[in-house]
């Protein structure tokens, strides 16, 4: 079963790559602009934290590590779930009907069958940069590093749950364009350590909208600032959210009425 889906994903990934390679200069421009966006925000952090020495109690290296960890979760989500951005036309024009009659999960088709090659390119230097800053911060404890990647995976699962809910919203309302961007903006609130926000917003962003869990917890665990309770809570929250999102998806499918002409 898993092998079958991996093979299907691989075929779609190849197809997606070929589509992107049709207009190569556009691929290059998109890649350059993504790097520019990353560079501008990094420059902003460097200028800001060099002037103030610390931001919300974090040094420059630590603040950059928060930003890099945000990027890792964000890029992984965009790499695998890019197809969500193209889902609305499938609903509005009725081509979602074809997803439903094929012998694969329509959720898998709507979610994961259009990976973004540009994000894959940016992922590699990003992982090296994270390794570099972990080294600069003298973090060598294998347990801390393992927990970091576990919490990155937790962040990815929460992102998955959000994308499933966005798809469900599209099935029910046919409106999705801004819903997926609202997710992006909520996630972007984790570009900086969650500690910059005042209470009760900080608590809200940690326990209700789990931006803190997704984006700040991995780095906080590396810096030794998380209790075992926080990690257990993060795991429980991610699994519950995924379960709820799957329930919502199933409910939304029951509401679907084909819109094809």
């Amino acid at each position: 079963m898993i092998l079958k889906y991996l093979k299907i994903w691989w075929l779609y990934a190849l197809n997606s790559f070929q589509v992107q390679m049709v207009v190569r200069w556009a691929l290059a421009v998109f890649l350059l602009v993504k790097i520019l966006r990353f560079a501008i925000f990094t420059l902003f952090i460097v200028i800001l934290v060099k002037k103030t020495t610390v931001l919300a109690g974090y040094s420059l290296d630590e603040t950059i590590l928060f930003f890099l960890s945000f990027n890792l979760v964000d890029i992984l989500a965009q790499l695998f779930f890019r197809e969500v951005y193209r889902f609305r036309p499938a609903i509005v024009m009725g081509t979602f009907d074809f997803y439903l009659i094929k012998p694969i999960s329509p959720l898998f088709r709507a979610l994961a069958c259009g990976p973004d090659f540009i994000d894959f390119i940016t992922l590699i230097p990003l992982i090296f940069a994270i390794g570099y800053f972990i080294n600069r911060l003298n973090i060598t404890d294998p347990l801390a590093i393992s927990l970091y990647f576990l919490l990155i995976a937790i962040g990815f699962i929460i992102a998955l749950a959000f994308h499933i809910m966005v798809l469900s919203l599209a099935v029910v309302t046919t409106e999705i364009d801004h819903a997926v961007m609202v997710y992006r903006d909520i996630a972007a609130m984790g570009r900086m350590p969650i500690d910059i926000y005042m209470e009760p917003i900080r608590g809200f962003l940690t326990f209700i909208i789990p931006v803190g869990i997704m984006m700040s917890y991995p780095t906080k665990s590396l810096l030794g600032q998380l209790l075992p309770f926080n990690i257990t809570y993060a795991i429980g929250f991610a699994i519950s959210l995924l379960f709820i999102s799957l329930k919502i998806w199933n409910l939304s499918l029951k509401q679907y009425s084909s819109a094809s002409s």
Partner: peptide, 20 residues
């Protein structure tokens, strides 16, 4: 949702500067 986006974007920038 478009309007919510603009509020979220503003909140991030506001709190970065507030914490500074």
């Amino acid at each position: 949702l478009w309007r919510i986006r603009s509020v979220l974007q503003l909140l991030l920038i506001y709190f970065i500067w507030w914490s500074v």
